[in-house]
């Protein structure tokens, strides 16, 4: 019997990063680890800030380029404008 069902979280097999035409790059000199990029990343593919912690104990955001579609939301919501969208073409 074939059932139209699926196992949890299997969408991770879809590497949607291949859609990307521009990539976000974070300037860690300017980043204040506020976590806004992580909070609003639609995939989500930005992790690691650990917003639950005090600001001084947080880490810089990490972007998983396997999934990042290059939408630019992170750059737009960043309050200190430390994320730059860089074209993928060389």
């Amino acid at each position: 019997m074939l059932l139209p069902i699926a196992k949890p979280g299997t969408s991770r097999e879809n590497k949607t990063g291949s859609w990307r035409s521009q990539r976000p790059e974070t300037d860690t000199k300017k980043c204040v680890k506020c976590g806004m990029c992580e909070l609003f990343c639609p995939e989500p593919c930005i992790t690691g800030v650990e917003m639950g912690k005090k600001p001084q104990e947080r880490s810089f955001p990490k972007t998983d380029y396997d999934y990042c579609k290059g939408c630019g939301v992170c750059a737009n919501v960043c309050p200190v404008k430390c994320i730059k969208m860089v074209p993928e073409e060389k």
């Binding site: 019997m1 074939l2 139209p4 069902i5 699926a6 196992k7 949890p8």
Partner: peptide
């Protein structure tokens, strides 16, 4: 056991379901 039920099927799969 959090399965997803009532999935959407592309042409590659839809007919397999109907045949089954």
């Amino acid at each position: 056991n959090p399965m997803s039920m009532g999935e959407y099927a592309f042409p590659a799969h839809y007919q397999l379901f109907r045949d089954d």
